[in-house]
Structure formats: structure tokens, C-alpha cells
């Protein structure tokens, strides 16, 4: 067999052997990495509701402010917002199906995400509010009840460029890693 033919056959074999070697060495790790990265999220269209963790969830209202809104019942004047930011007051509505789904609300988090994948958690900007529940599992005597609509509100501080382009995300520890993404617009 002449040298030229051996050379080209060896080169062709490399095309098969190298990826095979890489897969043998790291294929399992790569699959594990992909499994770890994948976020099983349920996406809900704007205005619609969805079942998650035994409760039915919906965005009730999102208001945008460029100055801190006054807190009903508080005499403390709210400080101004940092430059280039907006305050989003998100009101969620949920209806728990049974006692188990109410228990799941104890470890629950509402977040906002934008299309660039940025994520925000609620900010403690205004004085503690008593006029409305401020957590998924209730506050100040306002708690979710089976089969009754329950609303809670949280404030978020976002850069102005993200304020009109966010979805609400619900995380329940009992449902990890699954999450519910409710589109706003």
C-alpha cells in the first residue's frame, strides 16, 4: 500500500476516532451538565392562569412607578428610586387546591425575569406594608385558604430598560427544579 493512501486513510480514521475518544472520555459528564442546565419551566401565555404545586396561579396586576409609591397607612416618606431604575409592583393571584398545596407555599419565591435571562428578586424598598399580603403564604393575618382566591403583592427594583419586558416566575421548593413562568405581555 503506498504511503499516500495510508496517509489519507489515517486522516479519515481520525475524523471518526477523535470524536469517539472525546465522547468516551467526557460524554457522560456532558450529558450530566446538560441535564443540570435544563430548566423545566411551564410557560403561561399573558392573561392565562396555570396549575403549579397544587395551586392555580395568575398575574393579577403589574404597575410600574418611576418614583416610590406612597404606602397606605405609613407616615414614612419613601426615599427616591436610584437613577435609571423603575419600581414594579406585582400583584399575584393564587387559589390553593388543598391543605398540601397551602403547605407548599411556605417555601415559595416570586421573581421577575426578562428575555435576556436577567432575574430579580423582591426588594424591601417601602416600609413594611400591612394593607396587603406581601408573601405567597400570607402576612399580617392574610393567609391563603383552600379554594379561595388569595392575592399578594411584592415590589421589584429593575433597570428602566427591563421594566416593560418581564415575566413573573414562581419557584416552589417542593417542585424544584420545575418552575412556572407567567408571561406579562
Amino acid at each position: 500500500m503506498n504511503a499516500g493512501r495510508v496517509y489519507w486513510r489515517s486522516l479519515a480514521a481520525l475524523i471518526v476516532v477523535v470524536p469517539l475518544a472525546l465522547w468516551t472520555a467526557s460524554g457522560e459528564d456532558y450529558l450530566a451538565y446538560q441535564r443540570h442546565r435544563a430548566v423545566p419551566e411551564t410557560v403561561v401565555a399573558p392573561g392565562a392562569s396555570a396549575e403549579f404545586g397544587g395551586s392555580r396561579w395568575q398575574i393579577d396586576r403589574i404597575e410600574t412607578f418611576d418614583a416610590p409609591p406612597a404606602t397606605p397607612g405609613s407616615v414614612i416618606a419613601p426615599a427616591s428610586l436610584p437613577a435609571g431604575t423603575r419600581l414594579l409592583r406585582v400583584r399575584m393571584a393564587l387559589r390553593a387546591g388543598d391543605i398540601e398545596s397551602i403547605q407548599k407555599l411556605d417555601r415559595c419565591q416570586l421573581e421577575l425575569v426578562d428575555r435576556r435571562g436577567r432575574r430579580w428578586t423582591a426588594a424591601a424598598l417601602s416600609p413594611a406594608r400591612r394593607d396587603v399580603a406581601t408573601r405567597c403564604n400570607g402576612s399580617h393575618g392574610k393567609t391563603p385558604q383552600i379554594a379561595q382566591e388569595f392575592r399578594f403583592e411584592q415590589d421589584f427594583l429593575l433597570p428602566a430598560d427591563a421594566a416593560g419586558d418581564v415575566d413573573a416566575v414562581i419557584r416552589l421548593a417542593a417542585e424544584n427544579p420545575r418552575l412556572l413562568r407567567l408571561q406579562w405581555r
Partner: peptide, 9 residues
């Protein structure tokens, strides 16, 4: 302090 995306603290 918890830092938030794009919001200077």
C-alpha cells in the same frame, strides 16, 4: 446587600 441585575447599589 443583595445585588440586583443592572441596579447599582
Amino acid at each position: 446587600r443583595e445585588l440586583q441585575a443592572g441596579v447599582a447599589s
